[in-house]
Design a protein around this nucleic acid. Structure first.
Lengths: 340, 340
DNA sequence: CTGAAAGCGCTTACAG
DNA sequence: CTGAAAGCGCTTACAG
């Protein structure tokens, strides 16, 4: 039978004070480099503290400072496609500041969401980052009027707050420009449901960059739509595209597979660009996909730094900030692959 | 400019005591249903407390109770493939008990890992769940001799502790039995690197269940290995398999794609089973894959309940617990798909 | 330069 | 049945 012996008593500041032969107030000041403490005393206290393995209790500290050095990350992207990279960025940005993050995946049940938010507040989080899977939908929880700052990332935020999202227009432009630069002239845009804001934004940027020569094909976010679209295009009469700019990697993968099955060579005859840089899809496609990366980790990093600033009372300009996307070049376009 | 007005003072137990006209000790007892408090007083305190929106400060509580109602989830699966479902299970099991979870993705840098573990301990987590991406590798951090209980899930644990993992042998048996039941006789096992413990375990169960009629083909965890293996098998002389049991969904997908390209019908001529039930791969394969699900969410749930038990001092039998896998039937095998 | 005291928000014996 | 007091582990004015 296993059971935790609570014999391992944690060492407190009383222990270091006793061991160093000073009062606990002196010990505290010595350890925190505050107040006036003799240099020799300070050194001794510090030395003793590491010797006996003292680690300050963050709960006690938080009680005084009103800072828990903890933030909550709320998401309804239970699949983790967008949340994980974002979370990694948040954590990476905040670990140096000693803050940890509570991850909380809420289903689309508002009641459950409320419970989770309250649990976070009870634990005195210094702030909350709300994130989702769609920039034009908000989380099913009321985040207004909270006693802590809220920052939105990859989800619809309140008008008077700070939101971060990728610049989908710029990402689309990146894709089209790359295709043009390698000599493609008939670029078709194959994408998801028009109801998605990011779909419309990407489509608009695509149209602007190509001077509206081709129609945009809206569909769903699946490989089979990629297949179907290719079948439709290549069975229709008229000149065929020499490039496909797809709304996500799944569509792109479906398109590439379909092209191969039609005996059309990628990238020799047709170049294909995806969107998302979802490794499991993009890297396993034959050939591997050149695709647009939304830099979610960077998004997370900035969101993290921003809640921190707000929590510390530093002023932050409200509004939505679009972060640039990056083109990841693999082999589905031809041209010279650059390591970027 | 946005900045948080700390004007929104949190309401404390003093406020409810004052509003209810009692002392704070009475207020505390009333709210917690402890001690002797007049029924009428208790009701009034409770009513007042919700009226003014009182929520107890978990930090203050934790300081007294030595319980933070917080646990840490440590993982080196930064991609999130295994961690997210597991985490969902942990959170789901613990939310009713009021415990929140810190998610902490460590790279394979032991120093960073140590920092994260210490940050968790400083925050007085009640326990830690260690998880990874391979049951035969341990995390790059020293988790021995911690003042809190540690439970392992989907990662190599210490001998004297509790570990949870899926029963890969049973999972493989499930796959082979299903193939036999639908009439397949020549089942080939196409899998990952033999260096993986789970690969060997699955292979052993496969061999036992098929009476060693066919050799096991070891390779890597990629679609291209699935392709290559099919090409190799179908170009060799002799009788061909009528079923492929693959070590993961990627290999299975590669195999299915290759079979289609060879003009071999799935599932009519050859049945294929995968492993992992990784939606993005399994559901998008043509036809969608029948595959073995490791029930990671359930694994997480049990791991969560177990750290909790340990944290509360309840005894737990040490050792590794294997949880059963489940077969998810889609269309890659034929036979009658059952909704399970 | 050092320490005694008060206090963060709460709970828990202990008196009354 | 109710409340004053002590204390969880720490920090921070305030005296000395």
């Amino acid at each position: 039978m296993l059971s935790i012996e609570n014999s391992k008593k944690r060492v407190t500041i009383h222990d270091v004070a006793a061991a160093a032969g000073v009062s606990i107030s002196t010990a505290s000041k010595a350890l925190n480099n505050t107040g006036r403490v003799g240099i020799e005393t300070r050194e001794r206290v510090k030395r003793v503290s590491v010797e006996i393995g003292f680690r300050p209790n963050a709960l006690a500290r938080g009680l005084l400072s009103k800072r828990s050095f903890t933030i909550g990350l709320l998401t309804n992207d239970t699949y983790g496609r967008f949340t994980l990279p974002l979370m990694a960025g948040v954590a990476e940005a905040l670990v140096d500041h000693g803050v940890s993050v509570f991850l909380c995946a809420i289903e689309d049940d508002p009641a459950m969401g409320q419970i989770h938010v309250e649990a976070m507040l009870d634990k005195q989080v210094d702030g909350i980052i709300a994130t989702g899977k769609r920039i034009d939908r908000s989380l099913p929880v009321d985040l207004s009027n909270l006693p802590v700052p809220v920052v939105y990332a990859f989800t619809e935020g309140r008008a008077d707050s700070v939101s971060f999202r990728s610049d989908d227009g710029q990402g689309a432009k990146l894709a089209v420009e790359w295709l043009s630069r390698i000599g493609r002239r008939r670029i078709v845009h194959l994408t998801g449901p028009e109801a998605f804001f990011s779909v419309r934004e990407r489509a608009a940027a695509y149209s602007a960059a190509t001077a509206h020569k081709e129609p945009v094909l809206y569909g769903v976010w699946s490989e089979s739509w990629g297949h179907e679209a290719v079948a439709r295009i290549w069975s229709a009469p008229g000149e065929k595209p020499d490039a496909l700019f797809c709304g996500n990697d799944q569509i792109a993968r479906g398109a590439v597979d379909a092209l191969r099955e039609h005996g059309i060579k990628v990238p020799e005859e047709v170049s294909v660009v995806g969107f998302d840089n979802w490794e499991i899809v993009a890297a396993q496609t034959r050939p591997p996909l050149t695709t647009v990366d939304m830099e979610l980790k960077e998004l997370g990093r900035q969101a993290g730094l921003t809640v921190l600033a707000l929590a510390e009372g530093r002023p932050v300009e409200p509004g939505v900030r679009k972060l640039p996307c990056r083109l990841v070049v693999r082999q589905s376009c031809g041209g010279q692959p650059s390591e970027k």
